[in-house]
C-alpha cells in the first residue's frame, strides 16, 4: 500500500492501481471536506433559514409557485423562480416601472363592506404569500399578523411560539410557530426586521418589527388589486388540497370559510393541508 510496506513494488501495475485508488479516496474526502466547509460557513452566517426556504420552495408543486403577475393577468402563465422574493426580480421591477399599477380598491360588487371573497382583508395592509399581513405604523415600526384566511385555517392554535424581542427575522425565514393537533406549523416571516414586541391572537397582531436597514422593504408583498385574485387562487389551492383527501366540497360558492375549518373536518390530514397553504410542504 505504501513504499516500505511488505509486498510493495514499483511496478507499473501497482502504481496505476494504487494511484487510482488514492485519487478516488482524495476525491471523496475532498468533496466531503468542501461540503463541510461550506456547511459550516453557511451555518455560522445563519443562512439555515434561507436554505430551508429555498429547499421548501423547490419542493412546492408548480401550481403553488405562481408569479403574482400571473394572478393579475399580466402573464398567461408564469412560475416564480426566486422564492417569492420580488425585490431582486428584474421583471417585477420592469413591470412596475412600465405601468402605472392601478391600486384600485380590491372590492367588487357582491363583497360585503371591507371583505374580499368573504375574508376580512383590509386594503391598507400588505400580504405575504404565507398568509401573514404587514402594516407600517406611523411611528416607523411594522406590525405583522396572520391574515383572516390563515387564521380560519388554523382556528384556535394549541400553542404559539413567538420569537423573543431582539430576534432578527429574515424574509421567508421562520417568524413564529403554531402547534395544533400535534402538528408544528412554521409561519414564514413576511419581511426582514428585528422583533421589538410580541402580541398574540387576542391582540390581533403577532409581532412588531423595526427595519433591519434604514427602511422596511415591502416591494415583494401583495397589495390592492392583487389581493382578490390571489385569494381566489388560494381558495382553489385549498379545495385542491382538501380534494386530495376526498373532501369534494366547493368552498368558493358557499361564501366565507367557517371560523375554524379544521374543527369542521377533523378526519382530514390537516397537517398536509396546513403545510400546503403555509408553504411548508
Amino acid at each position: 500500500m505504501f513504499p516500505g510496506v511488505y509486498g510493495f513494488t514499483w511496478e507499473p501495475g501497482n502504481l496505476i492501481f494504487l494511484g487510482i485508488f488514492y485519487s478516488v479516496v482524495a476525491i471523496i474526502l475532498g468533496t466531503m471536506g468542501i461540503v463541510l466547509v461550506r456547511s459550516l460557513k453557511d451555518f455560522q452566517s445563519q443562512k439555515a433559514d434561507q436554505i430551508r426556504w429555498k429547499l421548501d420552495f423547490e419542493d412546492l408543486p408548480e401550481g403553488n409557485r405562481t408569479c403574482r403577475h400571473e394572478l393579475t393577468g399580466e402573464f398567461r402563465h408564469r412560475t416564480c423562480e426566486r422564492g417569492f422574493d420580488c425585490r431582486e426580480c428584474p421583471d417585477h421591477a420592469k413591470l412596475v416601472a412600465s405601468k402605472i399599477r392601478t391600486i384600485h380598491p380590491g372590492y367588487e360588487t357582491g363583497d360585503e363592506e371591507g371583505c374580499i371573497l368573504g375574508f376580512d382583508m383590509p386594503l391598507e395592509r400588505q400580504y405575504h404569500r404565507g398568509h401573514t399581513w404587514v402594516m407600517t405604523e406611523p411611528d416607523g415600526t411594522t406590525t405583522v399578523g396572520l391574515d383572516d384566511f390563515g387564521s380560519r385555517l388554523i382556528g384556535e392554535p394549541d400553542e404559539v411560539r413567538l420569537p423573543a424581542a431582539g430576534t432578527s427575522l429574515h424574509l421567508n425565514g421562520t417568524a413564529w410557530h403554531f402547534k395544533k393537533n400535534g402538528s408544528d406549523l412554521r409561519i414564514l416571516s413576511p419581511v426582514d426586521g428585528e422583533v421589538i414586541q410580541t402580541g398574540g391572537k387576542k391582540a390581533g397582531w403577532y409581532l412588531k418589527l423595526k427595519p433591519l436597514g434604514k427602511k422596511m422593504d415591502t416591494r415583494h408583498l401583495l397589495r390592492g388589486a392583487e389581493i382578490r385574485p390571489w385569494l381566489a387562487r388560494e381558495m382553489e389551492r385549498l379545495e385542491f388540497s382538501l380534494a386530495a383527501d376526498g373532501v369534494g366540497m366547493s368552498l368558493a360558492d358557499g361564501g366565507a370559510l367557517v371560523e375554524d375549518l379544521s374543527k369542521e373536518y377533523p378526519s382530514l390530514d390537516w397537517d398536509a393541508v396546513w403545510g400546503q397553504m403555509f408553504l411548508e410542504p
Binding site: V35, D42, F43, D49
Partner: peptide, 27 residues
C-alpha cells in the same frame, strides 16, 4: 430537517451529488 446544521449540511451535500455519482459510476 428541523435541525439547522443538518439542513445546511444536506443542502450542500446534495449540491455535490454529481461528483459522487461520477465517482460511484467509475467504481
Amino acid at each position: 430537517r428541523q435541525i439547522p446544521s443538518l439542513l445546511v449540511f444536506e443542502f450542500h451535500l446534495h449540491k455535490v451529488m454529481y461528483v459522487l455519482a461520477g465517482v460511484g459510476t467509475f467504481l
